[in-house]
Nucleic acid binder design. Sequence first.
DNA 1: TATTGTTATACTCTATAACTATA
DNA 2: TATAGTTATAGAGTATAACAATA
Lengths: 186, 186
Amino acid sequence: MAARTSQRPVAARSTRTGASRPSKPRLTARDAEQPDTIDASQIDFGPLSQYLGYYLRRLYDGYRKHFVAQAADLDVQPREVGALFVIGLNPGLTPSQLSVALALDGAQITAMLNMFDSRGLVERRVSSVDARSRLVYLTPAGKRMLDKLRKLVGGFDRSFAGDALTDAELGQLIGLLAKLHAGIGD
Amino acid sequence: MAARTSQRPVAARSTRTGASRPSKPRLTARDAEQPDTIDASQIDFGPLSQYLGYYLRRLYDGYRKHFVAQAADLDVQPREVGALFVIGLNPGLTPSQLSVALALDGAQITAMLNMFDSRGLVERRVSSVDARSRLVYLTPAGKRMLDKLRKLVGGFDRSFAGDALTDAELGQLIGLLAKLHAGIGD
DNA sequence: TATTGTTATACTCTATAACTATA
DNA sequence: TATAGTTATAGAGTATAACAATA
């Protein structure tokens, strides 16, 4: 029942994993009608190649991989770099301030701080003015880590962009991204 | 044992979740020495505000949320849009070609196709020239979905950018991102 | 033996709700 | 009662290895 028009209730797709029992591929004998060979290098992306989101996803993905590969010996993820910079530059800030600054929710901040803590990179002290608050500081080891990251990350954009963009273009790109970031609520 | 210099073996961090038992926050009485109040609006981001990766992460994150909010009734994730566009524009391509085109590995492609299949959006036929291959097509329902997405996505970048960027700047940004994407291996 | 597609598994990331301790 | 931080859990995203069918 329910002809295969767009009748399907939209809320019916509760869980997206699992992707229950795909219907068996048809064993049609009439395959000869289609090109059957599409050169992977000449795939039509249509309007996709005009969309901001498409490039943001692809490029962030590539950037992350590039970063993780180069920072393998430090065992640090990209977003953790941001966290260590912010903590280092703003000693004594609270987890909730970190949460706002990095646009990560409290639970994620706690998990990240626990991980930093277990590695001896940060320290949390209880605030003297509000015992609910914690003040976050880099330990000496955390400062050394931040120094290493500063060096690593210094020429990173340049090496990621390779010869795809000139210095001027890269600067222009970062400027536009910064302007967009600043101009939207995020 | 093992003074807290950088002696810690780097490979020791096998699992990153769990973040085993954080050391209890110190109950120091000398908290009065620090500012203790950092206005969340005046956090120092230092060089972070110069890094490509920082903006790519923040902006892609915002873009994804914006998209999911607006496309809630279609129940589609951003990357699934790309997949449906590519399948629609290249009927009869194989999962491995899709994998190259979208930079997702085979397992992810299969999972996505299973999900599309269970929703009646795509169909997989076995190739007549190589029985290992599958040829992927949009069903009529898949084509209707693609039409809806085309409409939704048409003005999407513009609405995401809001008044943060002019049309010219947005075009310039997409141009630079496309150039960067094309110029690196990704 | 190599390749296509698939399944299984695990780790990371993200989001939500519930709990604690303080206020 | 409200807030800061934490814990627990589950859903998505990503990566890897192993497997079946076919070449």
